[in-house]
Design a protein around this nucleic acid. Sequence first.
DNA 1: ACTATTCCGGAACGTTCGTTCTTTTAAAGG
DNA 2: CCTTTAAAAGAACGAACGTTCCGGAATAGT
Lengths: 192, 192
Amino acid sequence: MSRAKEFDEAEVLDHAVELFRARGFQSTSFTDLTGELGVSRQSLYDTYGDKQTLFHAALKRYRERSLDYLGRHFASTGPIRPLLLQFFEGAINGSCSKGNPGCLMANSMVEMAPHDPAIRALALAHARDVEGLIAARLSVAQRERDLGRDKDPAALARFLYHTVLGLSVAARALGERDTLLGSARLALLALD
Amino acid sequence: MSRAKEFDEAEVLDHAVELFRARGFQSTSFTDLTGELGVSRQSLYDTYGDKQTLFHAALKRYRERSLDYLGRHFASTGPIRPLLLQFFEGAINGSCSKGNPGCLMANSMVEMAPHDPAIRALALAHARDVEGLIAARLSVAQRERDLGRDKDPAALARFLYHTVLGLSVAARALGERDTLLGSARLALLALD
DNA sequence: ACTATTCCGGAACGTTCGTTCTTTTAAAGG
DNA sequence: CCTTTAAAAGAACGAACGTTCCGGAATAGT
């Protein structure tokens, strides 16, 4: 029928995620994208649509990968506290590596959510999903007597998500990995 | 000598703070500023310099006002826990009011810090100062047997500041005041 | 009254941006 | 072979941006 694409659509989208994560939406020009992705302007437009559509796709992909990772992470058994600490560590390491990009979702919540309803909806759905995953795992811990019956898993899950948002912002601007780990440990005291 | 300025420099700067807080630096055009501040382009340039300089001044003013408020807030005596809760409440109410603007410092940490060293330095200094204020007040509480001697005031202060960053981001994008208050309460469990 | 300084409106400049168009070249399937 | 589709490169567009310049009106102090 036709000529095959010379680039891997998903691969390029992942690369775009990294660019948007490091510089944000507005500070990443279309010229930056074509240059660093190694794809010509026209091909980018043909494949992903305009810049905003590309960003939405990138954020959606980031969100899917995050949920996928978290789903697998929280599927594992064992004590809940080290599991949550690893969750924080992963977020901190990801936010501190390669020029402190932070979390694309958190960054978008600040930069885009107020004037982009689609992003706001995505952020809200993501919060619900992540909090749901954590809450479900906390309920399991409760059933296994690893977490007090008096705790509210949903409220705790929201708190933990809010905490990871703060850590990713701090990581992006201040980038002090060690103190962030300390905060992560202190946050877990809410479980006791 | 000359004609007097028709606007109050500090007042206009405060107004600029609100604009930058709601829309960020890049999404607030100079035309937006002149329109909403009620000051002509030329006067803005004459008084504050270019847009970036104006933003730096606005952020500095926001920081000064924050520190001033926090200094007075944490100077008060009494039990530490309600004092910290009020601190969180203030941040949440400020971040949730008038279109969920969030915290200008947190927003700038996401939008500007990575590519503006001056902003990064300001964010770092602000973190040090706020954490210092909280840590000092926690030490007082320790002396008054209101906080365990085994706790590390500096680490706790960092954690509380990271928490407020997360709350302001969540407030900006999700704006759910009640759940944020719940998270604030849970964060305070780190003191027990 | 004079002068200096500011305010205001608007025009203008140069740049950058996102986006579209055009053309040429290249590969894959009928 | 031929058609279809994609790639690549570059020109071009209109819009928005930050910024500067100009000219006229207003107001303060000498």
